[in-house]
Design a protein around this nucleic acid. Structure first.
Length: 567
RNA sequence: CGGGGCGUAGCGCAGCCCGGUUAGCGCGCCUGGUUCGGGACCAGGAGGUCGGUGGUUCAACUCCACUCGCCCCGACCA
């Protein structure tokens, strides 16, 4: 294809709206344009990448025996009432009305639709297991669309759903799907982690996220060389079992700590490390007050706190409430001497304290040599702190390292959540009814484009891996006014196309610098430059990723370039 | 939804605080010419409801009110 007649609008400057590299580059390289917040057009180059990724996904889905289908975008709202998901989706569901005032939703995902198919058309155990998938646009009215196509309100997703007679059968498909997802991401040339995850509103028992590693990704994960990885939100804070607070062991004593309200101040003043101090955080959970103890060198993970008080409102106590509850000002709270109605919960790491330093519930005073069990009672130990780099792997005990990434895939074992709610059952060998055991598997196609760019770019632009590049080759005549150069470029483009190599010919009458910059920006893997060396019968092949340049005789240009592209 | 910021040509911005002729600059775009290996040069040209509505005023891009849109930070997710 010829650039001069293609819609590949590039920008020299960064659009003001784009924050992260992938968003900036997708706009600058002419891959996408925004219609409105969270809604994008894929221009020719961007759409070519989408189609490449879809192709890989289709091959891998078909390879594990999934069948492609196409489900509707328009969903009658009643199906969400039936599954009970109207509430859990809440405002994220796009709703609209038809001419007769009947309410519809734009499909955010298709568990309901596919479960209805299974209910009506997979009535016998003989047909199981089955796995169906589709690739189409999903709609979610995201609370906050962000980063271009990374979090859009309209996006392209591959979603698959499997139906089983037994948990073992689900396991098998789940593992096959994991393998397929691994191969998809590997074929796209990206490094990634598989992460234990929360199942969120999709529901179900077990789930894993596939996270493409990238510096500015939204997900933060902790991972181990043994292969284990977790989302930092749910990772437990685990350390070597060295005793904490050892140096403060000894007699229970009151110490004067004038104006020392932070852990740093207290530990500095008493010449101990922050980890010897125990923080007491006071919350209101539902209708009772609770005290939470965590090591002084740790932060409380509010997500875990909310989960512990499942469903109840949880909030910080204000200064007045703390004064009333403990008798002391903010900054000097502690677990000793609180009323019996105030339950004390502690993070698991607090088990490691022989004795601790805590606030005395009295101005300018702390207590040292405090022992749980003797001086106060801990109602329950839980995992409550934010995990951090260096915490230990629960599988092998090695220290975890932190990285960021973008979630591109998520697989779930749903169990019977939807089949029970929607009464979808099959008959077994004995003629007995059972709800289907289900799995569902999502993969963000449009997000994958951004993830690839996020991981593979340099200061000059995108660096596509060949498997998902819009095309493998760009032919760049340096001077379009030189008849010999121009004719050679046209001829080569035609020959490549004839050989099945999709080629972009930059036939624009622009100065060479612009063409070089644009070629780097759009990131096509190989660039064939036709310039002054043509007089000596030579052209140049540049490898975008390594910037390596090969000089090739024109006569061999097609053959030699094809060798590179094929390998 | 809470907090912060921004709407002036396709993109990036100035002007506004302190109201006053025809609203400016760079890039891009069009025409002609010179150039041609890393964002060239000369000459000419097109392109604007200054986000919208209302108000104040002799006069509003500029001041006031309301409103719409967009971006960033937080709770959510492919």
């Amino acid at each position: 294809m010829r650039w001069s007649k293609s819609c590949i609008p590039t920008f020299k400057e960064n659009p003001a709206e784009a924050e992260i590299p992938s968003h900036r580059l997708m706009l600058r390289a002419g891959l996408i344009r925004k219609l409105t917040s969270g809604v994008y057009t894929f221009l020719p180059l961007g759409f070519k990448v989408i189609k490449k990724i879809e192709g890989i996904v289709r091959e891998e889905m078909d390879a594990i025996g999934c069948q492609e289908v196409l489900m509707p975008v328009l969903h009658p709202i009643e199906i969400y009432e039936e599954s009970g998901r109207l509430g859990s989706f809440g405002p994220e569901l796009f709703k609209l009305q038809d001419g007769r005032q009947r309410t519809f939703a734009l499909g955010p995902t298709h568990e309901e639709v596919i479960t209805m198919i299974a209910r009506d058309d997979m009535k016998s155990y003989r047909t199981l297991p089955q796995c169906l998938y589709q690739i189409l646009i999903k709609f979610r009215d995201e609370i906050r669309p962000r980063y271009g196509v990374v979090r859009a309100r309209e996006f392209i997703m591959k979603d698959a759903y499997s139906f089983h007679q037994s948990a073992e059968s689900l396991d098998e498909t789940y593992r096959a799907m994991e393998g397929a997802y691994r191969r998809i991401i590997e074929r796209c040339g990206l490094s990634y982690r598989i992460v234990e995850a929360d199942s969120g509103y999709i529901g179900g028992d077990e789930s894993h996220e596939f996270v493409v590693l990238a510096g500015s990704g939204e997900s933060t994960i902790l991972s181990c060389s043994c292969g284990y990885a977790v989302n930092i939100e749910r990772a437990a804070g685990r350390e070597l079992e060295t005793p904490r607070g050892a140096r403060s062991a000894g007699a229970f004593e009151r110490v004067h700590t004038p104006g020392m309200t932070t852990v740093e101040q207290v530990s500095g003043f008493l010449s101990v490390t922050p980890r010897e101090v125990v923080k007491t955080l006071l919350y209101r959970a539902g209708d009772r007050d609770v005290a939470i103890l965590i090591p002084g060198d740790r932060e409380l993970n509010d997500i875990k706190l909310v989960r512990m008080f499942d469903g109840e409102q949880v909030r910080f106590l204000d200064d007045g409430e703390i004064k009333r509850l403990t008798g002391g000002p903010v900054g000097f709270s502690g677990p000793v001497g609180l009323s019996a109605e105030t339950a004390v919960y502690a993070d698991n790491l607090v088990k490691g304290y022989d004795s601790m330093i805590v606030g005395a519930n009295e101005a300018d005073t702390h207590l040292r040599g405090v022992k749980a069990g003797r001086d106060f009672t801990i109602a329950k130990f839980e995992d409550l702190v934010w995990a951090r780099e260096g915490d230990l792997c629960p599988k092998c005990g090695a220290p975890l390292t932190k990285s960021n990434g973008l979630e591109v895939g998520h697989i779930f074992k749903l169990g019977t959540k939807y089949s029970r709610a929607m009464n979808a059952e099959f008959l077994d060998e004995a003629g007995k009814s059972h709800p289907f055991i289900m799995g569902c598997y999502g993969f963000g196609i449009s997000r994958m484009v951004a993830a690839a760019i996020e991981q593979l770019h340099d200061k000059d632009g995108i660096v596509w891996p060949q498997s998902i590049a819009p095309m493998p080759l760009i032919v760049l005549p340096v001077n379009s006014n030189d008849a010999e150069i121009r004719d050679t470029a046209y001829r080569l483009e035609e020959e490549f196309e004839r050989c099945g190599i999709e080629t972009l010919l930059d036939d624009r009458d622009l100065s060479p610098g612009i063409k070089f910059k644009d070629a780097d920006l759009v990131g096509i893997p190989y660039r064939l430059t036709i310039g002054k060396k043509l007089k000596d019968g030579m052209v140049e092949l540049l490898h975008r990723s390594s910037r390596r340049v090969e000089e090739i005789p024109v006569a061999e240009a097609v053959e030699r370039t094809m060798e590179r592209i094929k390998t």
